[in-house]
């Protein structure tokens, strides 16, 4: 990583300070864990049985990822990407960005890297929140033992794969946000694409839909899924979509006739 790119990255990272996107990452990451804590506090009578289960961490992890993989993670990717790009549009700042002594690729990838870092931050906070949501109900009402150390290696391995699954959504949203100035357009299209992916889950070619991978990843081993989902080779396909959509986004960005 050269010095210019690092400087551009630090500059982009500072821009997200106090922004809506930055708050969304924190609030979104802790939302599901907070709900889990709340539900367990309300249904505290069932805690001893739950915490005594030898499969406690597996059940807890799966429980936490259900809403995350299906809804919150795609939504976070859609919203955070659009909001980060929107910082420039809303502040009429693209013209200043393009008048800086930076190559087009540096501008494009520095901002993209910040979005990817924010997504990583979102997932790390979520993992921390999942651990916290297991520990807090045991500590607050008492009566149950604090669970043993979680299988962190497994957690991080799963999280890394979910991160990979989400990359096509980020790349697609980045492309749309760079293409359309008004933030409603990329968010609206992203939401429609998510609904379409949700509808396509039981389709035989669902593993070709770029917005579907986090959902497929969660559902593939789920015995409660109504029918088997087609998830073969999805991580490779996710990576392929990510690279393709990133390249398309760069072409859109670099060939804009009006820069700001």
């Amino acid at each position: 990583m050269n010095r210019v790119f690092l400087a551009a990255l630090r500059c982009e990272w500072l821009k997200r300070r106090r922004s809506l996107g930055a708050w969304l990452v924190i609030a979104g990451a802790f939302f599901t864990p907070a709900i889990i804590v709340l539900v367990r506090l309300v249904r505290r009578a069932g805690l001893p049985q739950l915490y005594a289960d030898p499969q406690f961490w597996t059940l807890h992890w799966r429980n936490a990822w259900e809403s995350m993989a299906i809804f919150f993670m795609p939504m976070a990717a859609i919203l955070a990407t659009s909001l980060v790009v929107q910082i420039e549009t809303r502040n009429n700042a693209w013209k200043q960005v393009h008048a800086l002594p930076l190559h087009t690729a540096t501008i494009f990838f520095a901002k993209f890297a910040v979005i990817l870092l924010m997504l990583a931050q979102f997932l790390l906070l979520f993992v921390f929140g999942v651990w916290l949501s297991a520990v807090l109900p045991a500590l607050l009402p008492g009566g149950v033992a604090v669970p043993p150390a979680p299988p962190l290696r497994q957690f991080f391995a799963d999280t890394a794969l979910y991160y990979l699954d989400c990359l096509p959504i980020v790349a697609a949203q980045y492309l749309l946000s760079l293409r359309f100035n008004h933030f409603v357009a990329p968010i609206g299209m992203g939401f429609l694409a998510w609904v379409a992916a949700l509808s396509a889950l039981s389709w035989e070619h669902a593993n070709l839909v770029p917005y579907a991978y986090t959902m497929l990843d969660f559902l593939r081993d789920n015995p409660e899924a109504r029918r088997a989902v087609v998830s073969s080779g999805m991580h490779g396909l996710a990576l392929g979509w990510f690279l393709l959509l990133t390249a398309a986004g760069y072409v859109v960005f670099a060939t804009k006739a009006q820069k700001g």
Binding site: A7, A8, C11, L14, K15, R17, R18, S19, A93, P101
Partner: peptide, 16 residues
């Protein structure tokens, strides 16, 4: 950048 202070706005450029 309206969500940043005057000094932060310049700090962005200072880095570049």
């Amino acid at each position: 950048y309206e969500h940043l202070t005057a000094a932060e706005n310049l700090a962005l450029l200072q880095r570049i």
